[in-house]
């Protein structure tokens, strides 16, 4: 073996060490998606169809006997890759000019989170589109976990744009929500319906009693 060949072999070895070592270092760093997401799945989450239990649609029976969210109408555009295709002068409008009901949520009104921080990218895909970051398969990792570290798929079923709990359409959209709030309102209204007239009359009665007592002692 000639010396230049030896040098060549040594250089090749050195290069491969550098390349392999650097690749190991790259592998040790988290993948960009992992860094953005939870990087954490339970065994059950990776099984085929496992996400169905977290789907908000009641066509799969929902969870807890269909008492959860997901009933009511599902917009067809929520399955499109571009949910706003065909909307007139789309680029000139604000989100709230159409989505008035979605304007306020705890996220927007208290956390100052804007629409496009969750409904990302242009074109904005429908939340049920298969490759959407908002699809319940990956919503927890791609969207929720940006702020809520270690968010699970179950966590992501929290309804951000919750309907007004006592609206008539909520019975269908989210039955348990409607009935729980209705029960609490009956309890609250019942307590005040009893006590407010009761203590008002009671106060008047004591006032009258004090005056008549004073009159009697004066006489």
């Amino acid at each position: 073996m000639k010396i230049p060949d030896l040098i060549q072999v040594c250089l090749l070895c050195l290069m491969s060490i550098i390349v392999l070592a650097s690749q190991q270092a790259v592998a040790a760093a988290p993948h960009p998606y992992e860094a953005a997401g939870t990087g954490y799945f339970r065994d059950g989450d990776t099984l085929p169809g496992a996400y169905l239990q977290y789907r908000q649609s009641s066509e799969y029976g929902g969870s807890l006997w269909g008492l959860g969210p997901g009933g009511g109408n599902v917009k067809r555009s929520s399955f499109w890759a571009d949910a706003h295709s065909g909307v007139d002068s789309y680029m000139l409008r604000s989100c709230a000019s159409c989505h008035e009901d979605q304007r306020y949520s705890l996220h927007s009104s208290r956390g100052n989170v804007t629409c496009v921080q969750c409904h990302r990218g242009q074109p904005i895909s429908g939340i049920n589109h298969y490759y959407s970051g908002m699809n319940p398969i990956r919503r927890h990792a791609y969207v929720c976990a940006k702020c809520h570290e270690a968010a699970s798929a179950s966590f992501a079923t929290y309804v951000i744009h919750e309907p007004p709990p006592l609206a008539s359409s909520t019975v269908e959209e989210f039955p348990l929500f409607y009935y729980a709030v209705l029960f609490m309102m009956i309890l609250a209204v019942g307590v005040f319906a009893l006590f407010i007239p009761y203590v008002t009359l009671w106060g008047l009665r004591e006032l009258i009693g004090l005056f008549t007592e004073r009159r009697n002692t004066d006489v």
């Binding site: 699970s152 179950s154 992501a156 929500f177």
Partner: peptide, 10 residues
């Protein structure tokens, strides 16, 4: 939400 559906928190 690891022990109950997340929508129960609504």
């Amino acid at each position: 939400s690891d022990y109950m559906p997340g929508w129960l928190l609504n």
